[in-house]
C-alpha cells in the first residue's frame, strides 16, 4: 500500500495568487515514493501553477513544499536538479540550436565531475554509458547529432524526458508529456513511464489531459477545479466520482473511458 509510506513529495496548504486572482487555494498533495501520481482538471484549474511552484519558478503566498522531509519552499529553481527533482515543460523548453546529445549532456550538468579535466571535457567519458542508455531508452538513437529544433514534435517531447532523466532524478515532474502526441507515441510514453516507476523506482508527478494515459499508468489521481482539490483516489475511484464527472470528465468518459 503506497499510501502508508512516507511521501517523497508533500505539498501542504499551498496558496498562490497573482494580484487579486487566487490561482491555487489551500492545496495539499502527498506523492508516495515509486508511484505515478496524476494531477488533472479543466484548463485554468491551477495545475501548471502548482507545478511551477513545486519546481520553484513561482513563489507561493502560503504553504510549504517538502521533498524527502526537507523544506524546499524557499530554495531557488536551480537547486532542484541537485536535489534530484527534474521537470519537463508544457510548451517545450529545449536548447533548440544544440544537438540531442548536448541537450542531454546539459541535463547531466550536476554530474559532470569537479576535477579540472572533467570540467574541460567536451563529452565527459564517465557519463558516456549513462547518456547512451538514456538515448536508447527514449528511442532517440537515430538523432544523436540532430539539432533539437529539427526533430519532429514527438521526438522533441521525448528529448525533454531524456534530458530530465540525465539529472538522475528521484522525482520527475512532467507537465503534459502526452499533449500533441499521436496514439502510437502515447503508447510508447505509457510503457516508458510505467517502466521508470516500476523498474527504476522513480516517483512521477504529472499534469495531463490525455485520460487514456492518466487512467492507464497512474497509481493515484488528484483532481483540481478552480484552484481547489475536488477529489483524490485511484483512477477507478476518480472516474466514478460524480463531482469529477460534472466538473471535468463529462458523462462520455465516465461511461466508456
Amino acid at each position: 500500500m503506497p499510501e502508508l509510506r512516507t511521501p517523497l513529495l508533500s505539498v501542504e496548504n499551498l496558496t498562490i495568487a497573482f494580484g487579486g486572482l487566487v490561482a491555487v487555494r489551500d492545496f495539499s498533495i502527498a506523492v508516495a515514493p515509486g508511484t505515478i501520481h496524476a494531477l488533472i482538471g479543466p484548463n485554468g484549474a491551477g495545475k501548471s501553477t502548482t507545478f511551477n511552484c513545486i519546481s520553484r519558478l513561482y513563489r507561493p503566498n502560503a504553504g510549504r513544499i517538502l521533498f524527502d522531509g526537507q523544506d524546499i519552499t524557499r530554495l531557488p529553481s536551480s537547486a532542484m536538479a541537485g536535489l534530484g527533482i527534474a521537470r519537463s515543460f508544457q510548451n517545450l523548453e529545449l536548447f533548440n540550436e544544440l544537438t540531442v546529445y548536448e541537450n542531454i549532456l546539459i541535463g547531466a550538468h550536476c554530474h559532470c565531475g569537479a576535477s579540472l579535466r572533467d570540467r574541460l571535457s567536451a563529452r565527459p567519458p564517465h557519463l558516456a554509458a549513462e547518456i547512451d542508455r538514456i538515448i536508447e531508452r527514449t528511442g532517440l538513437g537515430a538523432y544523436r547529432e540532430t539539432k533539437a529544433c529539427n526533430l519532429d514534435f514527438g521526438h522533441q517531447k521525448l528529448l525533454e524526458l531524456a534530458r530530465a532523466l540525465a539529472i538522475r532524478p528521484r522525482l520527475l515532474l512532467l507537465d503534459e508529456p502526452a499533449a500533441g502526441l499521436r496514439n502510437r507515441e502515447i503508447a510508447i510514453l505509457d510503457g516508458l513511464l510505467t517502466d521508470l516507476a516500476r523498474r527504476d523506482g522513480l516517483t512521477i508527478l504529472l499534469v495531463e489531459h490525455v485520460m487514456q494515459l492518466v487512467m492507464s499508468i497512474s497509481d493515484r489521481v488528484t483532481v483540481l477545479n478552480f484552484g481547489t482539490k475536488i477529489a483524490e483516489g485511484t483512477p477507478q475511484e476518480v472516474k466514478s466520482n460524480p463531482a469529477v464527472v460534472e466538473a471535468y470528465l463529462g458523462k462520455e468518459t465516465a461511461l466508456h473511458g
Binding site: P76, S78, M80, A86, E93, L94, E97, C110, R163, I167
Partner: peptide
C-alpha cells in the same frame, strides 16, 4: 537557448 530550462538543469 532557454534560461528557464537551464535553471531546471541546475
Amino acid at each position: 537557448e532557454s534560461e528557464i530550462a537551464a535553471q531546471a538543469m541546475g
